[in-house]
Design a protein around this nucleic acid. Sequence first.
DNA 1: AATATTTACAACCGCCTCAGG
DNA 2: GCCTGAGGCGGTTGTAAATAT
Length: 459
Amino acid sequence: MSSASSGDDGDHKAGILRVMSSASSGDDGDYKTQKRNRSSSSSEDDDGRRLKYRSILSADQETDEGDNTGEEGGGGGEGSLKKGPWTAAEDEILVAHVKKYGEGNWNAVQKCTGLARCGKSCRLRWANHLRPDLRKGAITPEEERRILELHLRIGNKWAQMAALLPGRTDNEIKNFWNTRLKKRNRAKLPIYPADISSGCPLNGNQENADMLTKEASQRDETEDSKVPEVEFKDYKLNTDIFPPCFDKLIGSLVEQDSDLSHNTMFMCPSKRPWKSDMMYHNSYGCRSSPAAPAVFDQFGKYSMLPSPCDPNLYTNNQFHGYDPNLVTPKMSSFEPIHRSIKLEPPSHQYSHPGDIGWVDITPSPIEPDQSVPISPEISRFLPYNHPIVREQFSQSVYEAARSIDGPNSAETTQDHDINHDAFNQIPAYFSSENDNENQLDFAHPFDVLDYTGHREYKQ
DNA sequence: AATATTTACAACCGCCTCAGG
DNA sequence: GCCTGAGGCGGTTGTAAATAT
């Protein structure tokens, strides 16, 4: 303990220095890491904080312990289940029980051991603290990046994130995220660093979540609890599908409007997955189809483009494209959300400003006679990465951008700094007929162009 | 030194899904 | 189809410690 505290001292100062310097640089800093390291270094096997917590609460705990022993004898009645911090003795009992009977059937713990804890509490205690495969200590920079990327993709799906971060618990990740969010909110920093927000698909997406679930289960099957480092790097636009300008485009959307990028647009809209839903809201609060086009190649798979929203949705400061039914004002106690939002199942409607009722935003089905950017016989059945398709698609995007910004601003496609309005014209794919998930991998870039009706490029 | 604020973390709560009867 | 219990998940709260003022 004494050695730990002397070590703490050094860390302490280093921590302060680092905080100070990082604060001025606007960086997140390692304050938390320092603090956590200190905490975890005080105890190898258990986290120091909990020990301190326990000792501080000793008076209370003593009586509890007494109650426990007395309870077993005195038989605490039904309703006398204990709450609050777990004691070492309770931990021992629970561990012994799990060793003997395995996980599950948590309600039996109380009956078998006399432990005055409800099944839920036992499960939580085991899962978050007693499991042997838990990874103690601070969240590493790699893990942090991973968390950011995952959150960007799937939102507040802590359990799914935990499945992809071996040794970390959903609670841990959630706490980490909330603290981080609060901090960055206060500092008026964007939630996601630019390199992540511009390189990752957007969250709140069921496909992403499902994909990650599969990923996690595959990881479970195949082993090893180490997250391959390669997954932390090189997130980039899938240029097999989209021209490089899209990278800028999406990045610029995130970056240019800090108000948009700050909180709202990436909040996960749903508390629960809706497995049966074929239509999903993306991070813009708009519905998307599972068959929406693949854009990014993270994890070697594809994610989704923003689904077709009314371009007007993006032009207002209030960002009306966000379905007010999707996020809750009680999202958290520290008000990370600035706008009126709530968590409810995805609606197939969105509230139009000024409208009392609801407006169905279901796009009209694409009419075959009007939506043929290029010969459908060719483009629609060519592979998405076919050179012809790529070339023509690239040209189409260029033309689309030109049509918005005018011919004078028509630099090269790659250099063109597509502005917010231009983004509104980004074609988004939508088809209620293409519900087959397999379609995802074959979503055709030109399908994307149909929706917005940019047909100038039609040859 | 005292007080206020921030941070990290554990634990609980309520809701949900699912399986079994 | 309904009910019930178990388990899972995400949101929230409470607390000590660390840090700032």
